[in-house]
Amino acid sequence: MKGKVVSYLAAKKYGFIQGDDGESYFLHFSELLDKKDEGKLVKGSMVHFDPTPTPKGLAAKAISLPLE
């Protein structure tokens, strides 16, 4: 699924993505496929991810940034 980063707290390594389906997904650095892309996780960045339901809500897994 595609989505847009709505927040990312680099110090805490987490944030949120708004998916194309309108839902909010929890984003964690550990799910970023290329850790070098962390600096690109800023508000408004477009990402691809696997939407995954968890006991705490919806989460983004296997997060990647589109090729530039």
Rank of each mutant, 00 (worst) to 15 (best):
L27P: 00
L9D: 15
L41N: 01
K12N: 09
L58N: 08
K35A: 10
K13P: 00
G19A: 04
E38L: 07
Y14C: 07
Y8P: 01
P55S: 11
E31Y: 08
L27C: 03
I17W: 01
L65R: 05
S64F: 13
L32H: 01
L27T: 02
S7C: 14
I17P: 00
S7Q: 11
H28W: 05
F29A: 12
D20F: 10
K13C: 08
K56N: 10
V47Y: 00
G39N: 13
P66M: 15
E31V: 03
K40E: 04
L27Q: 00
K35Y: 09
G3Q: 01
K43A: 12
G57D: 02
K2Y: 12
D37I: 08
G15F: 03
E68C: 12
V47W: 04
F29Q: 07
D50C: 14
V47A: 05
E68S: 12
P51N: 04
K35C: 08
E31Q: 11
E68Y: 12
E31L: 03
Y25L: 02
V42H: 12
L33Q: 09
I17V: 07
I17N: 00
A59C: 11
G44C: 08
F16T: 06
F26D: 02
L65S: 05
A11T: 12
K13M: 06
K36L: 10
D50T: 15
D50A: 13
G57T: 02
P55H: 09
Q18N: 08
K2M: 12
G44E: 04
K40F: 09
A59F: 10
V6K: 14
D34H: 09
K43V: 11
A62N: 15
E23D: 06
A60E: 02
E23L: 15
K35W: 09
A62P: 02
E68N: 12
M1E: 04
A59N: 06
S45P: 06
E68G: 12
K12H: 10
P51V: 09
K61G: 06
G44N: 07
F49S: 01
E23N: 15
Y14Q: 05
P66V: 15
L27N: 00
L33G: 04
Y14M: 07
L67V: 13
S24L: 15
Y8T: 03
K40R: 14
K35R: 09
K4G: 04
P51D: 02
G39F: 12
K43F: 11
K35D: 07
G3T: 01
K56G: 07
K61Y: 09
K13I: 03
K61F: 08
F16R: 05
V42W: 08
L9I: 14
D34A: 05
L41H: 01
Y14P: 00
V6W: 07
P51W: 08
A60H: 00
A59V: 15
A59W: 14
F49R: 01
G3N: 01
K43L: 08
G44T: 03
S7D: 08
K12L: 12
F29I: 11
K56M: 10
Q18E: 12
Y25F: 03
D50R: 12
A10K: 14
D21T: 04
F29W: 14
S45I: 15
F26I: 06
G39A: 14
V47R: 00
L27D: 00
D21E: 03
K4Q: 10
L9F: 15
L41D: 01
V42G: 07
A60R: 00
L9E: 13
P55N: 09
F49K: 00
K36D: 12
K61I: 09
T54Q: 06
L58P: 10
V42F: 09
K43P: 14
I17F: 01
V5Y: 02
F29E: 04
H48A: 11
L33H: 05
L9C: 15
G39V: 14
L41C: 03
S45A: 15
A10D: 08
H48M: 15
A11C: 12
G57K: 03
V5N: 02
K13N: 05
E38C: 05
L33E: 06
Y14V: 05
G19N: 03
F29N: 04
Y25P: 00
F26L: 06
L9M: 13
G39K: 14
F29D: 03
P51K: 06
G22Q: 05
T54P: 02
G22S: 05
P66N: 13
S24G: 06
E23H: 14
P53Q: 13
P66W: 15
I17C: 03
A60Y: 00
F29R: 08
H48Q: 14
E31W: 07
E38N: 04
H48E: 12
D50Y: 15
K35G: 07
Y8W: 07
A60M: 00
P53G: 08
T52K: 13
V5F: 02
P66R: 12
P66S: 15
G3A: 02
L65A: 06
P66Q: 14
L32A: 01
L67I: 12
D37T: 08
S7N: 11
G15N: 00
V6M: 12
S64I: 11
L67P: 13
L27F: 15
G15Y: 03
K2P: 06
S45Q: 15
K13W: 05
D37M: 10
D20A: 11
A60W: 00
S45M: 15
G15T: 02
A10Y: 11
V47E: 01
Y8D: 02
A11W: 11
S45L: 14
E31M: 07
P51S: 07
L65N: 03
G44R: 03
S64P: 01
K56F: 11
F16K: 05
E38W: 07
K2S: 13
A62L: 09
K56Y: 10
G39Q: 13
P53N: 13
G19D: 03
F16Q: 05
E23Y: 13
F49V: 01
E31F: 09
A62W: 07
L27H: 01
V6F: 07
D37Y: 06
K12Y: 11
Y14N: 04
